[in-house]
Design a protein around this nucleic acid. Structure first.
Lengths: 138, 138
DNA sequence: ATCCAGAATTGGATCTTGTCCAAAACCGAA
DNA sequence: TTCGGTTTTGGACAAGATCCAATTCTGGAT
């Protein structure tokens, strides 16, 4: 966690109590939260933090490349603090939970030119879908 | 298009003017629309159709497996009438446009057991991201 | 051709997610 | 300690989507 905060200070971030708390909540988990979940967790540590600040801070972390924004279906976006390591996601179709996975194989190469339709391709995402342990046994 | 309508009638669907129009709008395109775009197109053909009906109909088509719901980032969901053929998506990060692609290679196999964390996996999605021809030259 | 029960449609209210703004509070360099 | 510029706040707002009771309509039965 201090890793992240140090990187941010080096980039000129002011270290406010609010930002520290958001960083602390995000730290190192492999199951990702929505902005409102992060807000709820942050409130436990700092009761007066506002929703807008959590959204602002998450947005800045995404811009800086420290956190990834992951969205599934019409649900709320989730924030993945594990932006530095290549990985894929496992999504529960019932409750929306997202987990990181680190598959062995290389994700397929890029698209053949005949399938690009003039697009400039910058990346590939691979998402596995299914039911998490909690929802699967219902 | 009548293919789709016939399959639906076989499953006990009542064929209303509204449903016919939604099916007609969805028919066979490889660039996918949002619900509101579909509503706008439907209004051209049937001025009094309501937004709720378009949402209802799309939801039913998704439940029946005739249409896929595709969502990207915080944007509106898009509807992919091409549910019966395996394919992947090409998404424009600037304007949200989605196109189908039909890559040659098999999408990677399923996840190794050690990476499943108790999930029951039902599918894999592969999405290429980039800029479409219109947005890329800006 | 007509009737009728149940299914579908309507449109407005409502919910959720997320963004925006001006005022107030705060951080940290000097 | 002071001060300027950065952050935070919270309430208003916007977009996407869902819900609901009242109304309309479909299609099988007659």
């Amino acid at each position: 966690m201090s890793d992240l905060l140090e990187r941010l200070r080096d980039r000129g971030w002011r270290l406010t109590a609010q930002r520290r708390v958001v960083a602390q909540v995000l730290d190192g988990d492999h199951v990702h939260y929505t902005a409102d979940e992060i807000h709820a967790l942050a409130v436990n540590l700092l009761p007066e933090i506002s929703r807008a600040t959590v959204y602002n801070t998450l947005g800045e972390l995404v811009s800086l490349g420290e956190v990834l924004e992951v969205s599934t279906d019409g649900r709320a976006k989730r924030y993945d603090p594990n932006a530095r390591h290549a990985h894929q996601h496992l999504v529960c179709d019932a409750c929306g939970t997202i987990r990181d996975v680190h598959p062995a194989g290389d994700p397929l190469g890029s698209l053949p030119a005949t399938e690009r339709y003039g697009f400039t391709i910058s990346g590939v995402e691979v998402t596995y879908r299914g039911l998490c342990p909690d929802c699967g046994t219902a």
